[in-house]
Amino acid sequence: MIGEGSIELAGGQESIYQALLDPQLLRRAIPGCRDFEERGDSRYAAVMEAGVGPIKGTFKATVAVTDQQPPQSYALQVEGQGAPGSVFGRISISLAPSTAGQTRLHYVYDVSVSGKIAMVGQRMLDAAAKMVAAQFFKRLHEELAAR
C-alpha cells in the first residue's frame, strides 16, 4: 500500500522535528499503541493494536528511525508481526516551514502487509492504512497543540 498526505502542525520546524522523535509523544500519538520502548540506536520496540471496525489485531513491532536529516526529514522503518499477519514498510516524513509559526509535514508510506490479514482483509486494508495515518497525524497535531 502506498499513500501520502500532508498536515499543518503548530510549532517551529526544529521543535517539531525533536518532538517527532520523542518516544512518549509517539506512544500517545500512535493509534492503539500499548507499549513504546526505546532500545537505543534510534530503534524502538512497540506493541500496538490496529484494526478497522470489528477487525483487530495485536502486533509486535520494531521501528527504526533512519535517514535523519534534521530538521528536514527522516524515515521510519517499521516491521510488525502478529497473529493476523505481518506488516513491514517505510514511512518517509519531511518538514518544511509554513505560514507563521506553522510547519508543514508531508508523509509518504509504502507499507506491505502479508499473511492472513492481506489474504482476507483486502477490502479493508487500504481503509485501515488511511485511517491509521489520519488518526496518527490528528493525535500528533493535538499533542503538539497541547504542549
Binding site: P54, I55, K56, G57, A83, P84, K116, I117, V120, G121
Partner: peptide, 21 residues
C-alpha cells in the same frame, strides 16, 4: 462485545479470527 443479528458479516470475521471479541 459484538452484537450478533444476522451475522452475515460478523460470523465470517469470527471464523477467520479477524474479529476476536
Amino acid at each position: 462485545v459484538k452484537v450478533l443479528a444476522g451475522g452475515q458479516s460478523l460470523v465470517p470475521m469470527l471464523n477467520m479470527r479477524l474479529a476476536q471479541p
